Computed example of a mutant assay.
Amino acid sequence: MLDRTKTTFSHVKPTDTDYVSGGLRDFFLYRDLGVAEATHGKVIAHLVKANMAPEKGTGWHRHEAEFQIVIMLKGWAKFMYEDQETLVSAGDCVHQRPGIRHFLFDYSPDMEYLEIVSPADFKTVDVEPVCAIPDPTPWK
């Protein structure tokens, strides 16, 4: 049975938290959904949206995390997962297995996704390139 003493109830409305810069990537904005605080760092849930046109993308990296999903809410993003190009469109859900090497290299101006990761203080580790990356689509 779930031990409810280790987590708290949380209800965050759209007006409760703002999108802010200063997250993992400077070309994205992040909106905290209160889950990291409610779970005492077990899980983080935040909204991520495009802030600037893609120029270089995220670079090749992996996360030291036990669990990670991305649910695309608006727009689209193109990832390389290992050597496989993957288009993630609104409505899609991606489970990124622990340690998978990936590179987000292109996205639409209206891209917005929900990301849920455990633990909340997961680490991002740069890795050697797996393969060549296609050029991003210029924004008009």
Rank of each mutant, 00 (worst) to 15 (best):
E37S: 11
R97A: 13
F67W: 13
H95A: 15
T58L: 02
K49W: 04
P14S: 12
F122G: 10
D32C: 13
T39M: 10
I71P: 03
T8V: 01
T137N: 12
G59H: 08
E37F: 02
F9C: 08
T8A: 08
R97T: 05
T8W: 00
L104P: 00
Y19R: 01
F67V: 01
N51Q: 01
M111Q: 10
K78S: 08
V94Y: 11
D121H: 11
K123C: 03
W76L: 07
H61C: 02
H102P: 09
D18R: 04
I100G: 03
K78F: 01
D18S: 11
G41E: 09
L33W: 06
R62P: 05
Y113R: 07
H63C: 05
D110R: 02
G91T: 11
P109G: 08
K123I: 11
I71N: 13
K56L: 10
D92V: 01
Y107C: 07
F105C: 10
A77M: 12
P129Y: 05
I44L: 11
I69E: 05
F28C: 13
L73R: 15
D110V: 00
N51S: 10
Y19A: 06
P129N: 01
V127C: 15
F103L: 08
A45S: 11
F9K: 09
S10W: 03
V48R: 08
T124N: 04
S21G: 12
G75M: 09
E128G: 03
A90I: 03
P138C: 07
E115W: 04
V43N: 05
F103H: 14
S89P: 04
T8C: 06
R31N: 05
F28D: 04
D126K: 15
T124W: 02
Q96L: 12
F28R: 06
L87W: 11
V70R: 00
E112R: 10
H46W: 03
S89Y: 04
V35H: 06
V48P: 00
S108E: 04
P134I: 12
G23I: 00
Y113N: 05
K74Q: 13
T86G: 00
Q84R: 14
A38M: 10
G34E: 09
T58S: 15
A120L: 12
D16T: 07
G75N: 06
G23W: 07
S118P: 01
S108M: 04
R101F: 02
F28L: 15
L73Y: 08
A36S: 14
V70A: 08
D110C: 01
S21H: 06
T137H: 11
V43I: 14
F122L: 13
L29A: 12
P119R: 09
E115K: 01
L33E: 15
H11C: 14
P138E: 06
A65K: 13
A36D: 10
